[in-house]
Amino acid sequence: MYLEHFGLDQRPFRLTPHLAFRYPEPSQVDALTTLRVALEQGEGFIKVVGEVGLGKTLLCRTLLDQLESPFVTAWLPDPHLSPGTLRTALARDLGIELPARPTQQVVHERLQEELAAMAARGLRPVLLIDEAQALPASTLETVRLLTNLETEQRKLLQVVLFGQPELDRRLAMPQFRQLRQRITYSCRLEALDHDGVADYIAHRLERAGGSERLFSPRSVARIARASGGVPRLVNVLADKALLSAWGRGRAEVTPLDVRRAVADTEDTAGQLWWPRLAPAARVAAFSLVAFGAFLALEMLAGGGG
């Protein structure tokens, strides 16, 4: 919508994880390094925890992209699985052939056989589970039991759990003490500070073919404050601010554009700037952005006719 106006090749602040736009935030870099070291050492369980929007899924995909032979990876993005469904999904993701309608006993035996065969060939299977805080208790116990399989030298299956802070609270429960004791490495993702947000915005704009000068320093500071340094919220606010500036025909995002974006976005610190503005007024304020965008489109259409 606003790409041509700002000289961009693509949207810089899309929400879907995109490896080409990955920003080397310090806690992400540290976590990735720890994961690589732990996997190389053959540790059974590794845990990565971070609040919503801090890039756990992007980190997971980055690890998947970087792990090469002898590692063989399986990724479970949906944690709402029964123990049997998890075993079947793991087997198929690892390329293990199963009968058309296998019993769980057959699946378990095939997993044991094939994991041992992979180890004999020097392969190292790794299971990555996203949103692990939502795993049912019985499924989490199944994951623990799978890591019991081992040779004299190492585990036959390594597991990386990616989850929100609720994962730590679940693992602190007495019923999960055996699993908790097997987690040898833990990583925690952190929010960006002000300078980190500024670098993040500049990095995304550069990758999209634009310039960091599209955002004034005061605009960046307000995005940093309102987002709390959460990359997902930075993306939401920056994208809406660009839309606002485009709708007003401006070549640069100003604090006014950020204020409008904040007023239209949940989970931001918008009340820090507009404490007296009622919810209806906030909606009306950002509707100006949409109206401006509509007028810009009308002008473009008229010029093309």
Rank of each mutant, 00 (worst) to 15 (best):
L19G: 00
H108L: 15
A202H: 15
A301T: 04
V253T: 01
A91G: 04
E212W: 14
A251E: 07
F215S: 00
L171W: 05
A198Y: 00
P79F: 05
S227K: 01
L86A: 08
R92G: 03
D199C: 14
D9V: 10
F45Q: 01
Q271E: 15
L277G: 01
A132R: 05
V258W: 07
L8Q: 04
L146K: 02
D195I: 07
G303S: 07
V234N: 02
C187Y: 03
H194L: 10
T254M: 10
P174D: 09
N148F: 01
E150H: 05
A116V: 05
L111Y: 15
F162H: 05
Y185E: 08
T62D: 11
L3N: 02
E4M: 13
R182E: 06
S82V: 06
V106W: 08
E51A: 10
L19H: 00
P255H: 00
G270L: 10
A241K: 03
E166S: 10
W274E: 12
F294T: 11
P77T: 07
D195C: 03
L35A: 02
V143G: 05
A280K: 10
L127I: 05
A208H: 01
T147V: 14
L145C: 03
V37P: 06
H108S: 15
T88C: 11
A238G: 13
L8Y: 06
R61H: 02
F71R: 03
L128R: 01
S216L: 09
E131P: 02
E113L: 14
R248F: 15
S287F: 15
G247T: 14
G7K: 00
A284S: 13
E114T: 13
P26G: 07
A137T: 11
E4V: 11
P79S: 07
D195V: 10
D130A: 08
R250Q: 15
P83W: 11
G209D: 00
P165Q: 04
L59R: 02
D264F: 12
T142I: 09
L111E: 13
K56H: 07
L67C: 03
L243K: 04
A293P: 04
A290I: 15
S287H: 14
P17F: 06
V143N: 05
Q105S: 09
R188G: 08
G42C: 06
T103M: 10
L288K: 12
E150A: 08
P255N: 01
P174K: 11
V253K: 01
A117Y: 10
V49S: 02
A290L: 15
A238Y: 07
A278T: 13
A119G: 15
A293D: 09
G209P: 01
P275T: 12
Q271M: 15
G249P: 04
P275I: 07
C187P: 03
L67T: 03
K56I: 11
L171P: 04
R250N: 14
P102D: 01
H194G: 04
I46V: 08
R232S: 05
P136M: 01
F162L: 04
P174G: 07
Y2R: 13
W75F: 06
P279I: 08
H80L: 12
N235P: 13
L156Y: 09
A38I: 07
Q178K: 11
G50I: 07
R260L: 10
F45A: 03
